[in-house]
Design a protein around this nucleic acid. Structure first.
Lengths: 334, 334
DNA sequence: CTGTTAGCGCATTCAC
DNA sequence: GTGAATGCGCTAACAG
């Protein structure tokens, strides 16, 4: 278009109103996405003027009066908290689809949280999605000065709603699958026990194993990473192998798989059956046919967007929204 | 219901000023990170009042007058445009380290760009980092109403600076490696030819192959994805195999690797030598020991942040900043 | 339906 | 050093 518009000239609603020959208020109404009382012809004039001037509302100024910024904070420790790009991509798309935008906050180490929020826009967002396990719900509310906080890290309370996968279900299915195939002994490779989610996850495995009469030979501590999977595999290499190895992350399972790759040749588990967790899309690659536990990401994301779209959802006492998980069988489970 | 400090109390600078017994202007100065004329005792009173009230500046309101939001837009087509999570994680951390925050914008399919512009969803950010190849520099400037646009997609112009890897260098090294190992024939697996970057990349391969006397047997069209790598491998399965296969993305190389995995057993390529592109961190997993071409992500990100931090860098006519690439040898190259 | 007025929260004049 | 006034761009509330 013309060069003025192309190089960020600042055209305000006052300019539009002047060109259209109406008042600012009329221009504002005509430009509003919501239906507001404006005569048809003036609306046309305003729209035409806005287009020719290349006008775009200043959302900052707008939010100053409307008290809503259409901005959602997504708080993570590291990017890798978003265990899968697919989830994140979908989340972003869906949030934008309801007319909001995402401000991504990487907290990193816990002690820097305060520093970030001190200068951040984060304080005035419409809602915050907390993936990071750095803090409990109360702390987050205090820091964000808002009740519109959704906890995805299982550290919710009465005031802040949560969305959480019902992991016990998928875990139960996975262990049942193993039992059905004659598994009697198992090793469980875990992540850091500091996370509440991880503690619950481990408890679910213990319960399911006991229920199916499978002996938990030992627990190996990892940190969710591929490398720690490698290390875990080395740790039980010399000993008597179990019938099955369960991991609380796919990445660790991949590390173990690579150590025992030859044993899994021809898509037949020989040393032991291997079960991961997360159902990363990476597992659809030929190289890692690892059975896993996952949930429907579309549903998960849908719940988040639904929640931030309606203030009603932030009234106290709402029970956590639970997303079902399921066992996904692959060659590593035999 | 809960009007306590923890739940959305709207403390403005006027409140702070009143409690401290000073004017708003004094409070503003005392709260400013920059040194401004305020007497020591009043500064103390203001700071104390701000702290006790839990005051946080409203960056949105602030930016209305200062014209700077400390917000940087990262524009991608899909999340997968950020070829590697490591890059993104580092980018986020470094941007936050200079006191700015990231608003992530996913444009999606090209045909929705217009709709995007129409709705004016974008804030008036300080700068925009454009990874998506959906638009030229002028369009992005108009969209964000800023001249501070950094193009990472090679679609820059005189007004918007660019940062781009010097891919010819790494490609030259990779082809030289192949030539040194006696490669005489090659197949090149490419992505969509619509992207300017891809066109340049292919041209670089052609040039390097010619220079080293390697015959380009054929060009196979993919779309950067793992699945398209699979398809590409199938396409030349029946025919005479080349000495080497070059791919313009690691994902495609992984797809090909999986089809010919047995040929790569014991870390010895037998069918052909395989070269990827991007140097994904995934290649450090045992399963995909694929030689690749990459650049130092720290340097790349550093250049972006440096550029954002100094308006000087946005004066017209700046030449693109070039980041060196290098060949990374792995087992697939023999 | 329309236009005028009055802020939203803040930084910045410019007088004192 | 200080504080009263002014304006950033926009919309809500109010009168016509």
């Amino acid at each position: 278009m013309n060069d003025d518009a192309a190089s960020g000239a600042k055209v305000t609603i006052a300019d539009v109103a002047r060109v259209a020959g109406v008042s600012k208020a009329v221009a504002s109404r005509a430009l509003s996405p919501q239906p507001r009382p404006v005569s048809a012809d003036k609306r046309e004039r305003v729209l035409a003027a806005a287009k020719s001037l290349g006008f775009r509302v200043n959302l900052l100024a707008q939010s100053l009066t409307t008290k809503t910024v259409n901005l959602v904070a997504v708080v993570v420790n590291h990017i890798h908290d978003l265990s899968d790009l697919d989830l994140f991509d979908r989340l972003l798309a869906d949030i934008q689809a309801v007319g909001k935008q995402v401000i991504l906050i990487r907290v990193g180490s816990v002690d820097k949280v305060d520093e970030f929020l001190r200068r951040g826009v984060a304080y005035h967002v419409d809602a915050a999605l907390v993936f990071s396990d750095f803090a409990d719900a109360a702390t987050v509310r205090r820091m964000f000065r808002t009740d519109h906080v959704i906890m995805l890290n299982a550290r919710h309370d009465r005031l802040s709603p949560a969305i959480m996968p019902d992991e016990a279900q998928g875990i139960g299915e996975a262990v049942a699958d193993a039992a059905r195939k004659g598994v009697r002994t198992a090793i469980l490779v875990t992540g850091r026990a500091t996370s509440l989610i991880e503690q619950t996850r481990v408890a679910s495995y213990r319960e399911a194993l006991t229920r199916h009469g499978i002996e938990l030979m030992k627990l190996v501590q990892g940190d969710y990473s591929y490398v720690s999977g490698h290390a875990a595999a080395a740790e039980f290499a010399g000993e008597a192998l179990p019938d099955a190895v369960f991991c609380t992350s796919d990445a660790m399972a991949m590390g173990i798989f690579d150590v025992y790759r030859e044993q899994f040749a021809n898509n037949k588990p020989r040393a032991f059956r291997l079960y991961g967790f997360d159902d990363l899309s990476l597992l659809d690659f030929d190289a890692y046919p690892i059975a896993s536990i996952g949930y429907d990401k579309a549903v998960y994301v849908q719940e988040m967007v639904r929640m931030i779209s309606d203030p009603e959802n932030f009234t106290p006492g709402r029970p956590p929204v639970v997303v079902p998980t399921r066992f996904v069988s692959r060659a590593s489970a035999g």
